[in-house]
Each structure stands twice: as structure tokens, then as C-alpha cells.
């Protein structure tokens, strides 16, 4: 076949041109999808926050210094965000902690809501990669996430003894429990001690 010979110059040229074209195509795709991807992620997070602390209207992210303290309290589980939830008049209603304990199929992104006294007000799973039909029961069996409501964040190690797992999905269920325990520790060690300004009508 009359194919170009493998001389050094032609080889370099072929690879260079291919890479340049590919980079251009990828830049265009990235630019076109970037806005939507960020929007999707924000919307998913927003939905989760609302569902774990229904009394709050707006969520204000807490600053990075507190996030570092929270990470220390959480140990090996990564903490991705801390929020204070406020109602329509700006009064603080509670907190939300986003963390990623390990399930059966890798880290699961959870949001745990805690009211001002540190009682768990709700748990929501943003992303998970558990076995469909087995591990996914942590999301489809409604009673499972509801059992965490009311656990006391200030004595979470005691509260977490009252735990019903799911047979066939033990690793996923225990992973979620771990996330709630972490949120309790974050509350006890960090959030309980901070002064939350009453706020001037949600900013």
C-alpha cells in the first residue's frame, strides 16, 4: 500500500497533527458541556441539602478553616462540605455535612443533616456505585435512611448501636452508618462549638 514512510520527520508530524486536532475538539466539547455539568452537580447537592434539613430555605457554606477541623474530626472519611441552613428570616436551623464513606463499590457521597441540637434530621445519598438490587436497597428501602433520624450527634457512638442493617447489603449499609457517625463527630467536635450569627435575612 502507498502509505507514507516512517521517517522521523513524518512520524513527528503525524502525531503532532493528530494531537492538535484532538486537543481542539476536546476543548470545544469541554467548553460546551462545562456549564451544564457544574449546574447538574450544584442542583444535585442543593436537592440533597433541602431533603436532609427541610426546615431550612437557604444553605450557606462554612469557611475552609472549619472544614479542616471537620476533616480532622472525621478521620479517614473525607469531608467535602459543611453548611449552615437558614430559614426564610435567616435564623439558623441546623447544619449539613457532606462526606464520602466507603461502600461496597467505592466511596458514596452522602449529605447528613443535623438540627441545632445535633440530632440527625435526615440523610441523603447523592452518588453511589453499589450493586443494583442489593446495595442499592440503601436508597430504595425507605425505612433504611429514616432510621438515622433522631440519632444524637453529641453521643453518636451510643446512638449508632441501634442500627438495622440490610441483609445482602451489609457493606453498603454499614458504609452509610459510618457516614452518619462521622457527621456526628463533626458536629460534636466542630459545629457544636461555633457561634452562628443569626444572620440578616439570608445572604
Amino acid at each position: 500500500m502507498d502509505r507514507v514512510a516512517s521517517t522521523p520527520a513524518k512520524m513527528v508530524l503525524a502525531v503532532l497533527v493528530t494531537c492538535a486536532v484532538s486537543a481542539t475538539a476536546l476543548t470545544l466539547t469541554y467548553e460546551m458541556t462545562r456549564g451544564r455539568i457544574a449546574e447538574q452537580q450544584r442542583a444535585a447537592e442543593e436537592r440533597a441539602l433541602k431533603s436532609v434539613l427541610s426546615s431550612a430555605e437557604e444553605f450557606e457554606a462554612l469557611d475552609d478553616g472549619l472544614l479542616e477541623d471537620a476533616q480532622e474530626a472525621a478521620g479517614e472519611v473525607q469531608v467535602f462540605g459543611l453548611w449552615v441552613g437558614r430559614d426564610a428570616t435567616g435564623g439558623p436551623q441546623g447544619f449539613a455535612v457532606r462526606c464520602a464513606p466507603r461502600g461496597y463499590g467505592g466511596p458514596m457521597q452522602l449529605v447528613v443533616g443535623l438540627d441545632r441540637d445535633g440530632k440527625v434530621s435526615g440523610v441523603s445519598i447523592i452518588t453511589q456505585n453499589e450493586t443494583p438490587g442489593l446495595g442499592t436497597k440503601i436508597m430504595t428501602d425507605a425505612w433504611f435512611l429514616e432510621q438515622f433520624v433522631g440519632w444524637d450527634g453529641t453521643s453518636i457512638d451510643t446512638a449508632s448501636k441501634e442500627f438495622d442493617s440490610i441483609s445482602g447489603a451489609t457493606k453498603s449499609a454499614v458504609g452509610v452508618r459510618k457516614g452518619v457517625i462521622v457527621a456526628g463527630h463533626v458536629y460534636a467536635d466542630v459545629l457544636a462549638g461555633i457561634e452562628v450569627p443569626e444572620g440578616g435575612g439570608g445572604q
Binding site: K10, M11, A14, V15, C19, S22, T29, T33
Partner: peptide, 30 residues
């Protein structure tokens, strides 16, 4: 295929395939 010298064909294939996969990846994510 006529402009890709035999010795560098594999790197060129990989770049082409990886580009299309990344396009699918970003589009699905969005």
C-alpha cells in the same frame, strides 16, 4: 490511514479513540 506512518500508528489510534471517549464522557456527564 495513508498519512499515518506504520511505526507511530498505535499512538495515533490511542489519541483518536481517547478523544472520542472523552467527548462521550463529557456529553453524558452533562
Amino acid at each position: 490511514r495513508r498519512f499515518v506512518p506504520e511505526l507511530v500508528r498505535i499512538p495515533v489510534f490511542i489519541v483518536v479513540i481517547a478523544s472520542f471517549v472523552t467527548i462521550v464522557d463529557l456529553t453524558m456527564h452533562a
